[in-house]
């Protein structure tokens, strides 16, 4: 129950003037149930990478195994793979098209061959999972707010009951509250269903807060792979490739440089606050 990449290479337009190697010898395994973040600057290969995970783009060389089976085998059921590995693109609300939200969310399961009753059941479950209010089920998707549209679009993928959910910058363009709501909902979904979640994000703070593991892409290669604490420890290298650590990590490093006895690896506000309080606790009189 996992996705494994073995030495995956991908070359765009081979043999032409536009030839470009978008992925270089990428290998990793994502076990079932993990919450993985993928970070990297624009053009680092993140989007190409996730499109490999459900067979949308075929590797130029290398193997991809889903649940132990090579997805490039001739008799491999690609259709089944695509319904089990759900991909939510950037700005997915541009893909909404039906007359009302419920019909739109039914589109996926309908194509999977489910009966109308089953489609509606799946669609309702999916909308509930993303916290979409029932009073808008019969509303045109085009009349919704940005955040609600985004939820409806994510529900459209969830209605196909995927085991793996891949999201390409699901919070781009949303206001801070909308961003937190979507990510909290995805976190809850992950916790309650044990679904594997792969989150592509430009926000280091968000990644640090939600994921178990971070894969850093740079120029088509896997540059770092580890827990948020491990990865953000390399903040200087991250800066060189257009990324950064969460702001609090920098605060912790500054504090350490000023002689505070803190572990500088904190990556979230809670971790940082715990560390700072620990450093202060020893000293009398500092607490107000």
């Amino acid at each position: 129950m996992s996705i494994t990449l073995e030495h995956v290479n991908y070359v765009y337009s081979p043999g032409t003037a536009y030839e470009k190697q978008a992925l270089k010898d990428v290998s990793f395994e994502i076990p079932q149930g993990q919450f993985v973040g993928i970070i990297g600057h624009t053009g680092s290969g993140k989007s190409t990478l996730i499109q490999h995970l459900n067979g949308l783009v075929k590797a130029t060389s290398g193997r991809i195994l889903y649940e132990g089976k090579n997805i490039y085998d001739n008799d491999y059921d690609m259709r089944k793979l695509r319904s089990q590995v759900g991909l939510v693109f950037q700005y997915p609300e541009y893909q909404l098209f039906e007359v009302d939200v419920l019909t739109d969310v039914c589109f996926g399961p309908k194509n999977q061959g489910f009966s109308p009753e089953e489609c509606e059941k799946n669609a309702r479950e999916a909308l509930e999972l993303v916290g979409f209010p029932e009073k808008y089920y019969k509303q045109s998707p085009f009349e919704l707010s940005g955040g609600q549209k985004r939820r409806a679009a994510i529900a459209g993928v969830l209605a196909m009951k995927p085991k793996v959910l891949i999201l390409d910058e699901p919070t781009a363009g949303l206001d801070p509250k909308g961003r937190d709501e979507i990510l909290d909902q995805i976190e809850k979904l992950h916790r309650e269903t044990g679904m594997t979640v792969v989150l592509v994000s430009h926000s280091m703070e968000d990644v640090a807060r939600y994921v178990d593991r971070i894969i850093v892409m740079n120029h088509g290669e896997k540059m770092l792979d580890g827990t948020p604490r491990e990865v953000f420890r390399h903040y200087r290298e991250l800066e060189k490739v257009g990324l950064a650590a969460p702001q609090v990590t920098y605060v912790m490093h500054d504090l350490k440089a000023h002689g505070f006895e803190v572990d500088p690896d904190a990556t979230t506000i809670e971790e940082a606050a715990d560390e700072i309080m620990k450093a202060f606790r020893g000293k009398e009189g500092a607490l107000a």
Binding site: D175, P176, K177, G178, D180, E205, P246, Q247, V248, V251, I269, E270, A272, A273, I276, M277
Partner: peptide
């Protein structure tokens, strides 16, 4: 529905 910079949030938490 707004937020504050993460440093401001950490200061607030402290």
């Amino acid at each position: 529905r707004m937020d504050v910079p993460q440093v401001t949030m950490l200061a607030e938490e402290l």
